[in-house]
Design a protein around this nucleic acid. Structure first.
Length: 194
DNA sequence: AGCACGATTAACT
DNA sequence: GTTAATCGTGCTC
């Protein structure tokens, strides 16, 4: 089965569906001409100004502007003074929604990834949203990049879809100060056995 | 002031 | 072996 990049139409849907569908897809980073890649195994959906866990809750700002843009772009931001986090903008232009990529399974460019995650076990290379950005050299320099362009430095290819029986659906994490119902919305997707 | 995190440490079983 | 607590760091509003 040949691989190809996911088209913008993939992202131009309900963001929760996009988060679910991204499991099993392949995140590819071209670094110095080399492919670094991993299979997406954990995602979370954030949507709209009403979602109090979503950055767009405060409306459109310089930081969140990309989320309001066309689907298929990367929304990359910096937090806690040291971590970059990668999101995939979803739904039609004008509506702020994105999928946080929380974890990938390292697949290609393992040596380069190991260098960037020096001293840690392979299982700890990409099992967190900040970790995978460090492992794949994803920073704000790539914010707004088109994830549908296979000639770019960062894109997502088709992979092997994960069947329902291998997906755990859970509440989002890392948003403890957010009130209900947003705190408990089942918008986190985790793939088993990678 | 607070943050969609991660590394380290401490206290457990 | 595990879970809980702590805090660094600098950008956003």
């Amino acid at each position: 089965m040949s691989t190809q990049v996911l088209p913008a139409s993939f992202y131009d849907r309900d963001v929760v569906q996009v988060a679910r569908s991204l499991l099993g897809m392949r995140l590819v980073r071209i670094l110095d001409g080399q492919r670094l890649a991993g299979t997406i195994i954990e995602t979370e959906a954030y949507q709209g100004e009403d979602d109090l866990a979503c950055h767009a809750r405060a409306g459109k700002t310089a930081r969140t502007a990309v989320m309001y843009g066309p689907p298929g772009r990367a929304y990359i931001y910096f937090t806690y003074g040291m971590h970059w986090l990668l999101n995939c903008v979803s739904q039609p232009e004008g509506y702020p929604a994105a999928v946080l990529v929380r974890a990938v399974a390292p697949l290609e460019g393992l040596e380069a990834i190991a260098v960037r995650r020096a001293g840690r076990a392979r299982a700890q290379w990409c099992n967190g949203p900040g970790k995978l950005c460090q492992a794949l050299a994803i920073t704000g320099a790539l914010n707004g990049i088109d994830l549908c362009d296979p000639r770019g430095e960062l894109f997502i290819e088709t992979g092997q879809p994960v069947p329902e029986c291998a997906v755990k659906i859970l509440p989002r994490v890392g948003i403890e100060r957010v009130p209900e119902p947003w705190l408990s919305m089942p918008w986190r997707f985790v793939a088993n056995s990678y």
